[in-house]
Amino acid sequence: MFIDISNLKKSYTSGVVITEVLKGIEMKIDKGEIGVILGPSGSGKSTLMNIIGGIDRGDSGRVIVDGIEVNNLNDDKLTDYRREHIGVVFQFYNLVPNLTVGENIEVVSNISKSPLKNTDDVLAAVEMQDKKHRFPRELSGGEQQRVSLARAIVKNPKLLLCDEPTGALDYQTSRSILRLLELVNKKFGTTILMITHNAAIAAMANRVFKLRSGQIVEDVVNQGIVPAERIEW
């Protein structure tokens, strides 16, 4: 089991008010699978992803990713975990504005332990090789998301976390990004976990988790996976 989460709980305290965000999450994903977490705003999706990605910590429970018990790591080990194992694709890209496309990718490659060696190949994989010397402001939203994806996969991560990767994009561009994620999964064997409001995207996933009020209310193994090219909404 690549991701193995058991009885994960997380609360936040503001003054005397305690808010339970995650209430005993159970989740399992095999290596090389695509998982999708569906749920409305405030259901705990981002908190769960942040804990899996080593950005936040759970209060209790176990979070094991590729044999690493994430909740037990000290701060230094947690930094190593994020650098060596995790790639992240953000909804709003988070590119460095004064670096070119190529430089945005190379700066991540240079601090990674075992990056993919040829950044040009990574750019080619996301069909952005002809934009290598452009700056983010010169790109469309879809092009910036492609660069964000290239920046994440150049690390050669074992786990790619995607936070609403199509949320700010139009329909055609969204399908293009989903096709690229599918390609990354197949070409590099990367395990992918996406959070989204869009239930249609679940059709391309091996496993689908529905999160509501901090609890997983459905955990479905998808028996009829639909290629990203055929997803419609």
Rank of each mutant, 00 (worst) to 15 (best):
Y93N: 03
N94T: 02
N94P: 02
N94M: 12
N94V: 04
N94C: 08
L95W: 03
L95P: 00
L95K: 06
L95M: 08
L95D: 06
L95G: 06
V96W: 09
V96G: 11
V96T: 14
V96Q: 11
V96D: 10
P97D: 06
N98Q: 12
N98V: 07
L99A: 08
L99N: 02
T100N: 02
G102V: 11
G102N: 11
G102A: 12
G102D: 10
G102P: 11
G102W: 12
E103R: 07
E103D: 11
E103A: 08
E103S: 08
N104I: 01
N104S: 05
N104G: 06
I105N: 00
I105L: 11
E106C: 05
E106Q: 09
V107N: 02
V107Q: 01
V107C: 02
V107P: 00
V107Y: 05
V108D: 01
V108Q: 01
V108S: 00
S109I: 03
S109L: 01
S109E: 09
S109K: 15
N110P: 01
N110G: 02
I111F: 06
I111H: 08
S112W: 07
S112P: 09
S112Y: 05
S112L: 01
K113E: 15
K113Q: 14
K113C: 05
K113G: 11
K113S: 14
K113P: 08
S114D: 15
P115I: 08
P115S: 09
P115Q: 08
P115C: 04
P115M: 05
L116I: 15
K117Y: 12
N118T: 08
N118G: 06
T119S: 12
D120V: 13
D120W: 09
D120K: 08
D120R: 10
D120N: 12
D120P: 02
D121T: 06
D121E: 13
D121K: 09
D121Q: 05
D121A: 03
D121Y: 09
D121G: 00
D121I: 04
V122Q: 00
V122K: 00
V122A: 02
L123K: 10
L123M: 15
L123Q: 11
A124W: 07
A124C: 08
A124S: 14
A124V: 14
A124K: 14
A125G: 06
A125W: 03
A125N: 13
V126L: 04
V126W: 03
V126I: 10
V126Y: 06
E127H: 14
E127T: 04
E127D: 14
M128H: 07
M128Y: 04
M128D: 07
M128A: 14
Q129K: 13
Q129W: 09
Q129Y: 12
Q129I: 13
D130I: 05
D130L: 13
D130H: 15
D130M: 11
K131D: 06
K131F: 13
K131M: 12
K132L: 13
K132G: 11
K132A: 14
